[in-house]
Design a protein around this nucleic acid. Structure first.
Lengths: 98, 98, 98, 98
DNA sequence: ACTGAAGGCTGCCCGC
DNA sequence: GCGGGCAGCCTTCAGT
């Protein structure tokens, strides 16, 4: 796998593409840091902002997990969910369970 | 600092901009992971690729540090560095010293 | 710091003590794995058990974080919290906010 | 599988035992961290200590693998290995081969 | 300069 | 055997 071979060129391509993406990533990371700094300059505690973002992120994750649970219910109940009435019933069941 | 106040709006803005950037970052991160997977599918060892990239990054950092050192020398030598010819002269000096 | 020196003996002592603790840790880890296996043999899904444990752990963490939040409120409100009545008021505030 | 059923009690038992073991594990983990801190206070680089421990662990694993290989040879040679003298003979054979 | 936390990376274990 | 998910480790950074 020396220079100039097909494999070598492929490797080079992978490496360069990854390096480019890492550069992009660094830009974004730096932007985020700048925002935190700016927020701090405006009197907001960065740590608190992180808490807020973490909280929102988790809430979103919780919602998605609940959705997965609902899907589990739906699948477990099979065909029933295929009819509007059945679906509504299952949904009602889920709401009371949650 | 409740909803609707100026500070509240500012905070909301910061939070949302950061969240957007984090979303962007996630996209890039996922792209990188995909590339590593693709490389693996093509028979390259991901771990080794990481090593290669780390090595190149290190080399680049070393070069930049050397460049900074060079700049320090240039400035220490005063206006000479401001002309291309002078710069080249100092650079030659530096190369032999290094 | 060669063999037989004071520093060498100290280092040896640290290394061995750490290795012993790691051995202990391995025992505990293996015990945990055995328990998961036993649970599986008894018809319980290990993955679900992990979920349950993670859930309980998080609930505990949440409670502690809430306590930290309460502390933050208390400190922010300063002296007020030093009187029983003030403390109760803050606590009431916290309850409605949570 | 609700509370009070046999299965429920079994599950509860598993969960609690696992949680207890995890608590034990945390104690050991914390002890290890303390040791690293203490080592650092005594002028040792924690990172290097980790390297040392990893190295010794690797060496130990290598030795055990070699021992397993030796056992394989011994068994392949049949009953010879059952006597101390025979074992020593095979071991000599192995040492020169390795 | 050191400590404590936050994020990223690696190795491990599981299920497919 | 492989890929996904998860825990542990390492690194970096803000704060002191």
């Amino acid at each position: 796998m020396t220079e100039g071979t097909v494999a070598g060129e492929q490797l080079r391509s992978f490496v360069e593409r990854i390096e480019n993406l890492e550069a992009d990533k660094k830009v974004v990371t730096d932007d985020i840091k700048e925002l935190y700094s700016a927020a701090k300059q405006n009197g907001f505690d960065p740590k608190t902002i992180r808490k807020v973002i973490a909280y929102r992120k988790q809430k979103k994750a919780d919602r998605e997990e609940q959705q997965m649970l609902l899907d589990t219910y739906l699948h477990a109940l099979g065909e029933l969910a295929d009819t509007p009435l059945g679906s509504a019933a299952v949904r009602r069941e889920f709401e009371t369970a949650a």
